[in-house]
Amino acid sequence: MEPANQTIISEFFLLGFSQDSAHQPLVFGMFLSMFMVTVFGNALITLAIISDSHLHTPMYFFLSNLSLADICFTSTTIPKMLVNIQSQNKSITYAGCITQMYFFMVFGGMDTFLLTVMAYDRFVAICYPLHYSVIMNPRLCGLLVLVSLFISLLYSLMQSLLTLRLSFCTNWIIHHFYCELAQALKIACSDTLINHILLYIVAGLLGIVPFSGIIFSYTRIISSILRIPSSDGKYKAFSTCGSHLSVVSLFYGTGLGVYLSSGTSPSSWKGMVASVMYTVITPMLNPFIYSLRNRDIQRALQRILRRAL
């Protein structure tokens, strides 16, 4: 049923974290630092992979795409938040909010699919090492990335178009630091049943199906590693998966926190804190996880630093 008193909305208001102006400089400095570290770290990983011919392999090709997706993922939310804090203005235009939702879902989906593709890459490398170069050829690698991007774009477009059909009457306040879809649906005054159905179905598919693929891959990987006779061989095989497994645990652990907190009250900080872990902390830590545990990345970074100096 359409509301009787409907107005055309021009902007939303993002409450963010702190309502106390005295805490705003601290929040601004903290998020600016994390954003700069995220962008610089992921850009450095991408540059190292591009500049070093030894890293032109499927595993590092997917890693460079993951780093680029992480930069874009964080850039959809944090810059607007920083601008709002600096200007002491919590508003975001209606078009800006829909655009932010769209790209947030695009790059969030890309992260999910790329982590799944990377798990498949490690599965082929360890379980079928003699056929690895044939199976993981450049054409397949490029196709996997393009399919991941296409699915993410398609879902985001569908959800954004459905959101454009919604009406917002008098409550234009989003209890979050960015235009989060679930929070926007809560303040809509028109029927959101179709939106929620699509949200839960696709969230389940994007969560359960890729995660099941990762679990299957690592089940086969662990089974193959256990059959390796030497302990040194087992360690080398598992070390190639350690970084990816750490990132997957961090990504899905924080993502689960966001999902579980979605049922809390709109003003609860739990949802926003969980979202910070998912949207900021995880992309920020990914470069450190891969650089600290990967000697090839370390050598490539050292060569870049020597050239710069």
Rank of each mutant, 00 (worst) to 15 (best):
L66D: 06
L66G: 06
S67E: 05
S67T: 06
D70S: 13
D70T: 08
D70G: 06
D70V: 01
T74Y: 01
T76K: 02
T76Y: 11
T76L: 04
T77K: 03
T77P: 00
T77A: 15
I78V: 15
P79C: 10
P79G: 05
K80G: 04
K80N: 12
K80Q: 09
L82G: 10
V83L: 14
N84T: 06
N84G: 15
I85F: 14
S87N: 14
S87H: 11
Q88R: 15
N89C: 13
N89P: 07
K90C: 12
S91N: 12
T93M: 03
G96A: 04
C97S: 15
I98T: 02
I98W: 06
I98N: 05
Q100K: 12
M101D: 02
F103Q: 03
F103L: 03
M105K: 04
V106E: 04
G108W: 13
G108D: 08
G109R: 04
D111A: 02
T112Y: 01
L115Q: 10
R122P: 07
F123T: 00
F123M: 02
V124R: 08
I126H: 05
Y128Q: 02
P129S: 04
L130I: 11
S133V: 02
V134T: 12
I135G: 02
M136R: 14
N137Y: 09
N137C: 11
P138E: 02
R139C: 07
L143H: 07
L146F: 11
L146P: 00
S148E: 04
